[in-house]
Nucleic acid binder design. Structure first.
Length: 541
RNA sequence: GCCCCCGUAGCUCAGCUGGAUAGAGCGCCGGCCUUCUAAGCCGGAUGUCGCAGGUUCGAAUCCUGCCGGGGGUGCCA
C-alpha cells in the first residue's frame, strides 16, 4: 500500500499516514481512515490526531489543527477542505477532481481492485468432511457455504488456496454403515447403532441389483462409501461448491502415513505407552489431558489418523491449515493444535474455525437432526425448497460464530422477501438501464466524464471504493457475512442513486457517460461481491 | 467442575484488534409509479447495548466478577 497505489482510498490513507508519521517522528503510527458517518462530516475522517495525543502529550484538537495543515499540503487540489470536529477527528471534504479520478479508477476492472496481501500464504482449507455414511444435511450446507466463501475471500486477497474434504472412510461408523445396508438387503432392521434412513434402503436396493453379497461387509462398506461420496460430491456441486480434493482416511493407512506420523512424534519425545495404548502427551502443549493415538486393541483412533492427515497437509507445503469444524468438535481443537505444535512446531499455522449450530425450524418447532435415525433435512432438499442463491445467502448472512435458526416455512413462503433478492434486484435493474443505454445513441466517447455531483452519486462512488477494504477485512476476520452486509449496502446506495439521478438521457456535459460508467462499476461490484458468496447476479428478474 | 458460543429496537441480527448522535432487515403507521425494473424509494415510532465494578480523554467494544440461554467435555467419530 503506497502513495502510488491505484486505489484512491489507499492514496488518501497514505497521505494521512505520512503526515501523521512525520509529526510523530514515529514510523509505526497507523491512523485509521473511515468513510464519514454523515455528509456534514465530510467524505472521510481520520482519528490520527487522537492517536498522537498521548505520545506527543498535546491536546488532540491542537494536534489536529497542525495535522490538517500537513494533510492539506499532501493532498493539494484534490482536497476541498479539512475540518476538525468532535474530540479531534479530521474530516476530509474531497473535491471534484478526486471524485472524477476515483470513479474512473473503477472502470478498468469493473470494480475497485483488490490488492493482494503483503505476505500471501499457501493455505489449505478443510471443510464439510461429513461422514460418508449419509447424505449431506442442511447443517453441512452451512459448512459448505462458509468454507467455500472463505476460500474465495482468501483467494481474492492473493493467497494460494486448496480446498479439501476429508473422507472418513475407515473406522467403526463405516462398519455400522455396511452392516445397516446388509441388514436392509436381508429385509432386516439395521443394528441398534446403525443407520436407519431411507437412503440406506436405496443403497441396499442398488447393492442387490448389482449383485453384492450382504455377507461381504468389507466390499459393501467400500462400495457404499463410494456411492455416498459420489452423492456428496454431486450435492456440493449442485450447491456451487467444488472441492479441489477428497482425501481418503483409508489412504493414510495404505500409504503408511499413520505409522510414520506417530513414529515422528515418538522420535520427538512426545509419545508414551500406557495401559497397552499409545498416547500423545498433548498436555505439554496446552491440552487439558493426554490423548490416545492407538487403542489397546491396536486400532488407530480417529485422532491418530487425523494427526497423520494434518502432517500430510504440512508436507504438501501448506503454510496454514484452516479446519472448519462444527461446534461439537471444539474440544478437539486444543489437542490438534497441541499435536501440530509437538510435531511440526512453527512449520505451519493450525487454525480452527468453529461453526455454531444451525437449527431448522418447521411449524414453529426445532427439527432434531440425527443422521443415524434418518431424521434429517438434506442439503439437496433445502436447495430444492428455497434455491441455491437464497440458501447460500441465508446460511452466510450471519456470523459463522453464531447459532442460527433457519425457519423453513419462512424461507419457503417469503423467499421473495429474502435479502438476497434485494441485492440481485439492484443488479438486474442496472442491467436494464445498461441495455437501454446501449439502444440509445450515446454521446461522443471522447468527451470528458463529468465528476459525480449529486450526493447520492457521490455516496455510491465511495461505497464502491470501499470494496477492497471490505474484502480484506472479511478475509482477515474469516467473516464472509460481512460481504452480505456490504452487498446490501451497495444495493441500497444504488437504489438511492437510481431515485435521484437519471442515467439515460441525463443533462449536462459528460453526465450521462459518467453515470453509465458508475452503473457498470456498481454492477461489477455487486457481481464480484455475490461471486465471493457463490451467489449469481441475474441480468433480469 | 472445566471449555466454547451467545445476551444490542417488538422479532432476527450487524457493529466488538476503543472513537462523533449505537445501525440494518422484518413487523407496525403514513406517503411515492404518464422518466431508465415499485422484488424499489421516502418519512414516522421503538434502545438501562444482560448486571456490577475496573482501565481510558473516550467503552456496546478491553479487563474482572456475577446472572441468563445454548453447546461441548469418551481408548466415539
Amino acid at each position: 500500500m503506497s502513495a502510488n497505489s491505484s486505489d484512491p482510498v489507499e492514496r488518501l490513507l497514505a497521505a494521512v499516514t505520512a503526515a501523521a508519521r512525520q509529526m510523530a517522528g514515529d514510523q509505526s503510527v497507523t491512523p485509521a481512515l473511515d468513510p464519514s458517518p454523515r455528509p456534514e462530516m465530510g467524505d472521510y475522517s481520520t482519528n490520527a490526531a487522537m492517536m498522537l495525543a498521548k505520545p506527543l502529550g498535546r491536546a488532540p484538537r491542537e494536534i489536529a489543527a497542525d495535522l490538517a495543515t500537513a494533510i492539506e499540503a499532501e493532498l493539494g487540489s484534490s482536497l476541498e477542505k479539512a475540518e476538525i470536529a468532535g474530540p479531534g477527528f479530521i474530516n476530509l471534504f474531497l473535491g471534484d477532481a478526486w471524485y472524477r479520478e476515483a470513479a474512473a479508477s473503477m472502470a478498468a476492472g469493473g470494480s475497485a481492485a483488490v490488492a493482494p496481501v503483503g505476505e500471501p500464504e499457501r493455505i489449505i482449507v478443510e471443510f464439510v468432511s461429513a461422514n460418508p455414511t449419509g447424505p449431506l444435511t442442511a447443517a453441512s450446507g452451512r459448512h459448505a457455504a462458509y468454507g467455500d466463501a472463505l476460500s474465495k475471500l482468501l483467494r481474492a486477497t492473493g493467497n494460494d488456496i486448496t480446498t479439501e474434504y476429508y473422507v472418513n472412510d475407515g473406522g467403526t461408523q463405516v462398519e455400522n454403515f455396511a452392516a445397516s445396508i446388509a441388514a436392509r438387503m436381508n429385509g432386516e432392521e439395521p443394528p441398534e447403532d446403525g443407520y436407519k434412513g431411507t437412503y440406506v434402503n436405496e443403497l441396499a436396493e442398488r447393492a442387490r441389483s448389482e449383485g453384492h453379497d450382504p455377507a461381504d461387509l468389507e466390499r459393501l462398506a467400500r462400495t457404499g462409501v463410494e456411492w455416498m461420496v459420489e452423492g456428496i460430491r454431486g450435492s456440493l456441486e449442485n450447491f456451487g461448491v467444488s472441492m479441489d480434493d477428497f482425501f481418503s482416511e483409508r489412504s493414510l493407512y495404505e500409504d503408511n502415513l499413520v505409522d510414520r506420523g506417530i513414529e515422528r512424534m515418538r522420535e520427538a519425545g512426545h509419545v508414551f505407552d500406557e495401559e497397552g495404548a499409545v498416547w500423545l502427551r498433548t498436555t505439554d502443549f496446552g491440552d487439558d489431558k493426554d490423548r490416545v493415538l492407538i487403542r489397546s486393541s491396536g486400532e488407530v483412533t480417529y485422532f491418530g489418523a487425523d494427526v497423520a492427515y494434518h502432517v500430510d497437509k504440512i508436507e504438501r507445503g501448506n503454510e496454514r491449515l484452516i479446519d472448519v469444524l462444527g461446534a461439537d468438535h471444539h474440544g478437539y481443537v486444543a489437542r490438534m493444535a497441541a499435536a501440530m505444535e509437538a510435531l511440526e512446531g512453527g512449520k505451519a499455522e493450525f487454525e480452527a474455525q468453529i461453526m455454531q449450530l444451525i437449527h431448522l425450524v418447521e411449524g414453529g418447532e426445532r427439527t432434531k437432526m440425527s443422521k443415524r435415525a434418518g431424521d434429517i433435512v438434506t442439503l439437496d432438499e433445502l436447495t430444492q425448497d428455497i434455491g441455491v442463491d437464497a440458501a447460500r445467502w441465508f446460511l452466510l448472512q450471519r456470523s459463522h460464530n453464531q447459532t442460527i435458526d433457519l425457519d423453513l416455512d419462512l424461507a419457503r413462503s417469503q423467499s421473495s422477501e429474502n435479502p438476497v433478492y434485494y441485492v440481485q434486484y439492484a443488479h438486474a435493474r442496472i442491467q436494464s438501464i445498461l441495455r437501454k443505454a446501449a439502444e440509445a445513441d450515446g454521446g461522443d466517447p471522447g468527451d470528458p466524464l463529468a465528476a459525480p455531483a449529486d450526493p447520492s452519486e457521490k455516496a455510491l462512488v465511495s461505497k464502491l471504493l470501499a470494496f477492497p477494504a471490505e474484502v480484506h477485512e472479511a478475509a482477515e476476520k474469516r467473516a464472509p457475512h460481512r460481504i452480505c452486509a456490504y452487498a446490501s449496502e451497495v444495493a441500497a446506495a444504488f437504489h438511492a442513486f437510481y431515485r435521484d439521478c437519471l442515467v439515460v438521457g441525463a443533462e449536462g456535459d459528460g453526465v450521462e457517460a459518467a453515470r453509465i460508467q458508475l452503473c457498470e462499476a456498481t454492477a461489477g461490484t455487486i457481481r464480484q461481491s455475490l461471486g465471493l458468496l457463490g451467489i449469481t447476479a441475474p441480468d433480469r428478474m
